[in-house]
Amino acid sequence: MSDLMNMVLNNANTQWVLLATMLLGIASGVLGSIALLRKQSLIGDAVAHAALPGICIAFMLTGEKSLLALLIGATITGLLAAYCIQFVISNSIIKEDTAICLILSVFFGFGIVLLTKVTQSPAGNKSGLSDFIFGQAASLVGSDVKMMAITAAALIVITALIFKELKVLTFDPEFAKGLGLPAGFLNLVFLSLLVAVIVIGIQAVGVILMAALLITPAVAARYWTDSLGKMIVISGIFGAISGVAGTLISTLGEGLATGPFIVVTATALFLFSMFFAPGRGIVTNAIKRQINHKKINRELTMQKERGEYL
């Protein structure tokens, strides 16, 4: 444990990595909350899986592992996947769940095909592209990690700036249009923000588990409050804790992927919320229901005694 403390205190790179995963956690917690309420959580999952072919194509085109190029590739195929899902749903009898599943798995299949192609070349074999599958935050270095941190911070700021518009649009799209908000444009902006946070997250969390960082903190936060503003803050905090804790745990051992530990931390926070959050937690709720059932039965008997029911 003291080794860990030493590493955190003395290693500048580790500090940057922690800062980056913390900001990433906040950004995905915030955007994930909105995605959850818009029922787009699983689209995030599809976008994350669909990033894999983009990463491989970018690598094949540039021939080197430049994070910026890879992320641009990931963004393009991620957005393409989101568009394909929408296109299939609105132009056939295929329902949303099937469309998401289909696009997700087929894009990922293409990704695997390309990945096997890439790793056949000597440069590709050492590129560590497979780190993108489960995430390897510790392998982040120098400028890459700074770019990630800055992008995450920018996403948080942009979301804060258009928060009120997104809120109206999410709650009541028709009303938002009535207010004169450019609904189509805002939808696109939100989707882009979502894709952006997924893309910067896949290096740390991996394409398969990135969805968890969007969904789990948001669902956990929902237990604590009924206000969207507070929910987003709590979700951001949960995301940050998950990101930092997951990264720290994974640096403890050799070759441990970061993603799974981030997910486990987030789920632990979720389970705690589900059971013990005041107002909605299962334990707190069960107690309330007991009291309520007794009340209803008591009222019924009292009314019967008074002869109100015949």
């Binding site: 699983l42 769940d97 588990l209 969805a211």
Partner: peptide
């Protein structure tokens, strides 16, 4: 959809 997302990512992790 969120229930599915939470459960499978956790068990897979």
């Amino acid at each position: 959809d969120a229930s599915i997302g939470v459960v499978f990512t956790f068990l897979f992790a």
